[in-house]
Design a protein around this nucleic acid. Structure first.
Lengths: 121, 121
DNA sequence: ACTAGTACCTACCAAAAAGTATGTATCTAT
DNA sequence: ATAGATACATACTTTTTGGTAGGTACTAGT
């Protein structure tokens, strides 16, 4: 009939793909719904949490902060908190975050070229 | 307490992100677990279904064919079936699929550089 | 005492992506 | 008649990602 494995291979497969393919690795780091946009906005300089929120109106605070935490944990983004009240926190790209520029440019170029009349799908 | 919206904004947000960000668009096209690997294997020339399967042992047939269908629908991959028995089907990159090369190269370069001692996470 | 401002946190739920198991068609060779 | 080869299809489940709704802390200003 139908038996299910105790532990799925999902996590395993992630690391297989990560190990086999540096592209998958990169994809894994920038692959959240709003991560490219966040990184893009930070390329022109550090921004405060609230400024990022304003720059990406459709994002919820939960997703914004979740993505920021992940980007920070992945070493792409720096968080700098000033111990004042009300809080003042700025986010900026790290060296490896800035090194993504050529990647993002290549992706943007391809995307702009091949998304003609296709975006509304 | 807890009320739920009739229709979630998930789909809406996808298209917002896609429209705002060509990088997100590109990400959307190559963003399946095994898609980069599939595309990579096709860069050296057309392959049969079974050859792709052998090239990526960890992938299940369901995911392989699902990704191939999506890549085909997205215009990145061509499917050519010979009406013989047993079936003989080859997959190859389209022009836009081949145009991903610089994107994948940039991603691979970044990935290889920044994944040192990090892959085992 | 109360409100405003900033940057979060958390419990819960929904939707999407990935994985498991099994089945199908067709012809050739045995 | 049966098995082998090839390229799928499909029903169902699990895992991950994203969204909703609400709350917190801390101080300054009124």
């Amino acid at each position: 009939m139908y038996e299910t494995k105790e532990s799925s291979t999902n996590q395993l497969n992630i690391s297989i793909a990560l190990n086999k393919c540096p592209v998958t690795y990169t994809l894994h780091k920038i692959g959240g719904r709003w991560k490219p946009l966040i990184i893009y906005h930070l390329t022109s300089g550090p921004l405060r949490y609230g400024e990022l929120k304003k720059a990406i109106p459709a994002i919820t605070e939960k997703m914004l902060i979740q993505h920021l935490k992940e980007l920070e944990a992945d070493g792409l983004v720096n968080r700098k908190a000033m111990p004042v009240v009300p809080p003042h926190v700025t986010y900026s790209l790290t060296t490896s975050g800035e090194a993504l520029a050529p990647v993002l440019n290549a992706m943007a170029a391809w995307g702009m070229h091949y998304s003609k009349a296709d975006v509304l799908e």
